[in-house]
Design a protein around this nucleic acid. Structure first.
Length: 155
DNA sequence: GCCAACGTTGGC
DNA sequence: GCCAACGTTGGC
């Protein structure tokens, strides 16, 4: 796919790990409540795109595998579900404020690519996840970065 | 557990 | 519309 794009999704393994994703098969990536990330989910993240699945607040913090987008952005219905983990009364089915995508696990890394490694590896210095204070939970990744990280992880 | 970064909220 | 207070993220 010529216009395939690449992303990095952060998740705290305490809350939702790569193993959980493998177990679940397809997962709805809901609960994102940040406008910058929302715009990416709504406008830019398309079926077939590649995802680096990153464990934050973990030991070690690392990209642990890849996932594939199986459904492009659509309204996050958990926003108007008062029983959900992230309700937002300002979002409604008529005027959805938040978006999500569906993803499924692809290739688990043999060797997790740690944050420590990302910070020092040639070609990865610019990766957003390695920048100080980069809190965005959905980040763009260049095809060069994708190639380097997946090659390292898959061995 | 601490705290820097930074997005959001609310008083004015 | 400014900006201080507050809350959250997430590395350390």
């Amino acid at each position: 796919m010529a216009d395939r794009k690449y992303w990095l999704f952060k998740s705290e393994p305490n809350a939702y790990s790569y193993a959980d994703l493998q177990k679940d098969g397809v997962a709805e990536w809901d609960g994102v409540r940040n406008y910058q990330a929302r715009n990416l989910l709504r406008d830019d993240i398309k079926e077939g795109d590649g995802i680096l699945f990153y464990h934050s607040n973990a030991a070690p913090m690392a990209v642990v595998g890849t996932a594939i987008v199986v459904r492009s952005g659509y309204p996050d219905s958990t926003a108007w579900d008062p029983k959900s983990a992230h309700p937002d009364s300002k979002s409604s089915p008529d005027e959805p404020r938040w978006y999500m995508v569906d993803i499924k696990a692809d290739q688990e890394f043999k060797e997790p690519v740690t944050l420590e490694a990302i910070k020092v590896l040639p070609g990865l210095e610019k990766m957003m996840v390695g920048q100080r204070g980069a809190r965005l939970s959905v980040q763009p990744v260049s095809s060069e970065e994708w190639n380097i990280v997946t090659k390292l992880g898959l061995g």
